[in-house]
Write a protein that binds this DNA or RNA. Structure first.
Length: 599
RNA sequence: GGGGCUGUAGUUCAGCACGGUUAGAACGCCGGCCUGUCACGCCGGAGGUCGCGGGUUCAAGUCCCGUCAGCCCCGCCA
């Protein structure tokens, strides 16, 4: 190995063009590939900016040429040489530097490398275990470099936009207080206070509200959040939120700023112009038309409620469902499915909780083909055709059950069917807002109402009078932002009056004592002229993932955890020493030592 | 907590339904040759606890049970 000495890098590996011909340059980087012909040796030298072909010839410098024979993949090297045009017909159009090469007269091997455990230069899918264990190698791959660089650009664009709009970036604590409600907290034991714990924040929610009370007016932060829950392709125990809050605003003000932000970011990173304004659906409409509160608007296939058509039906399955307060909904798909496909779809519906999946094929001249159509009256058939206006060759699917089941099954089916028949356009970004969420949700397990968004979400002003009488009917001032069927963020106008906050706590069965203990600081702060305020939080990783069309959030995070929440690179979580545990009062030794000291 | 898929050479995979020679391929690696390649080429070579444990069997990579790990999903994630 050689020392770097006084060499200075003059150019990156993606930089040199024919305009540099004849210049002496010094490049530093990693050996991507070597092509050793015995005589002439070619090295593809890689750094984060690109690839440059370096040539070693015995005629240029025999010693250097000899040295170059030792080069292997991922050796870290420095090369001094001259830029020259490649011989006629030897240009490589696949790389931007393909017209030139560097004839090397000096080589310094800065570090050798073991043979990489997996290939870095190919598009081969490598098992994620290996990629995560050797993340430093994985991150050398163009895909990962691209993702993290893009992520940086999204963050920069957001920062620049929010700065222009008068938002101030303020950091909030990671060591904070555990909150009831919501996700499981990650806890940090306190050394100075035996038996007491900090919690890592699930979000900076309360701090940003306090900042509004403090008069900062507009705050934002790109901030890590922690939730000790099970993982998914789009969920990590620590993830990043683009978090913001504004004072003296209504829903519309927040939503406007966010639309502008999203459009600005898309334009300045992907170069995509999004249509404004984003469509706004109420929670009720979303459930009605799409069966879910996060509809994918890249395609149609809207659900249609058919209960009305079948109020008098002789078809027992439908009649019984309606009698029990159930619902009949259908979806019409412009595709003729095979018997096997219909069977598969039926078993999918069963897995999702439906008792069955009825279907009707629509033939030329509105002739219907189905095992159940014989049970339908003329009127009912007419009603169906009117509801769907199906083209010939379409298939109509029905689910009849309790509303929750019907919506869940058809929502899933809608997406599966759209995928199946290729209705989902690639590289399209369809945003929408979902508003007017219920404030509360009944929690069967706990036997009480829980906040659908969070306990600080303001009820709609016009629903305040029924807060106590009909809590389930109260709507909140919350809004979710949905992209292509994925919730990318949400927010709300917050409660800024202590009296209303106390009423909501009461509904959530958070007693005055508990409220004071857990959120006393907020309740007290609300008593000092808290302004009306509201805000929003983006799932930043998720947004970047969707923008890049990646399948997992781990593809846009430098050092992600596995599904079992382990870090394969560092080996976290890991055991700690008895001393550490004792110091943190997690082992009884502390008490012993203390009494020993006294003696 | 539950369901599913996967686990064979450094890597990506085949072999497993229907148990039976010495477990294969490609890439990578090592050695040799090679002065215009760019996924360089040619010749030769090394490399395996078939995730782990148990069982069935004359015989298990292959069948059965358990277990571990990775991934996907449900529950959970205000």
């Amino acid at each position: 190995m050689d020392l770097l000495g006084d060499w200075k890098r003059t150019h990156h590996c993606g930089e040199l063009r024919t305009t540099h011909l004849g210049q002496e340059v010094t490049l530093m980087g990693w050996v991507l590939r070597r092509r050793d012909h015995g005589g002439v040796i070619f090295i593809d030298l890689r750094d984060r900016e690109g690839i440059t072909q370096v040539v070693f010839e015995p005629e240029i410098n025999p010693q250097t040429h000899q040295h170059a024979h030792r080069l292997r993949a991922e050796y870290c090297i420095a090369v001094k040489g001259r830029v020259r045009r490649r011989p006629e017909g030897m240009e490589n159009p696949k790389i931007p530097t393909g017209e030139i090469e560097v004839e090397a007269y000096e080589l310094r091997i800065l570090n050798t490398s073991k043979t990489p455990p997996f290939p870095l230069d190919e598009e081969i899918e490598v098992a994620e275990v290996h990629r995560l264990k050797y993340r430093y190698l994985d991150l050398r791959r163009p895909k990962m470099l691209e993702a993290l660089r893009f992520r940086h650009r999204v963050a920069q664009a957001a920062r620049s936009f929010l700065d222009q709009k008068g938002f101030i970036e303020i950091e909030t604590p990671f060591l904070t207080k555990s909150t009831p409600e919501g996700a499981r907290d990650y806890l940090v034991p306190s050394r100075l206070y035996p038996g007491k714990f900090y919690a890592l924040p699930q979000s900076p929610q309360l701090f940003k509200q306090i900042l509004m009370i403090a008069g900062f007016d507009r705050y934002y932060q790109i901030v890590r959040c922690f939730r000790d829950e099970d993982l998914r392709a789009d969920r990590q125990p620590e993830f990043t939120q683009l978090d913001l809050e504004m004072s003296f605003v209504t829903e519309k003000d927040v939503m406007d700023v966010l639309e502008e932000l999203v459009c600005y970011v898309f334009k300045n990173t992907l170069g995509v112009e999004l249509e404004r304004p984003f469509p706004v659906l109420t929670y009720q409409e979303a459930l009605e038309k799409y069966g879910t509160d996060r509809p994918d608007l890249r395609f149609g296939l809207e659900l249609v409620t058919l209960s009305e058509i079948f109020t008098q039906t002789k078809f027992r399955v439908f009649a019984e469902v309606l009698q029990k307060g159930g619902l009949i909904k259908g979806i019409c798909v412009p595709h003729d499915f095979s018997r096997k496909e219909l069977d598969d779809l039926t078993s999918l519906a069963n897995e999702l909780g439906a008792k069955g999946l009825a279907w009707i094929k629509v033939r030329e001249g509105n002739e219907l083909q189905s095992p159940i159509v014989k049970f339908f009256s003329e009127e009912e058939i007419k009603g169906l055709l009117e509801a769907f206006k199906p083209e010939a060759g379409s298939t109509i699917f029905f689910v009849a059950d309790q509303p929750g089941v019907v919506n869940e099954v058809l929502a899933e089916l809608r997406v599966v069917l759209a995928e199946k028949i290729g209705l989902i356009p690639e590289k399209e970004f369809k945003f929408c807002w979902v508003v007017d969420f219920p404030l509360l949700e009944w929690d069967e397990e706990e036997g009480r109402y829980v906040a659908m968004h969070h306990p600080f979400t303001s009820p709609k002003e016009e629903d305040l009078p029924i807060l106590e009488e009909a809590p389930e009917k109260v709507r909140s001032r919350a809004y979710d932002l949905v992209l292509n069927g994925v919730e990318v963020g949400g927010g709300s106008i917050r409660i800024h009056r202590p009296d209303i906050q106390e009423r909501v706590f009461r509904l959530l069965k958070i007693g005055p004592e508990e409220a004071r203990e857990k959120f006393g600081f907020l309740l007290e702060a609300l008593e000092y002229g808290a302004p009306p305020h509201g805000g929003f939080a983006f799932g930043f990783d998720r947004l970047v993932m969707l923008m890049l069309g990646r399948r997992s959030i781990r593809e846009v995070i430098a050092f992600p955890k596995t599904q079992r929440a382990q870090c394969l690179l560092t080996g976290a979580p890991a055991p700690v020493t008895m001393t550490q545990l004792t110091e943190l009062h997690l082992l009884p030794g502390w008490e012993l030592k203390k009494s020993e000291k006294k003696q």
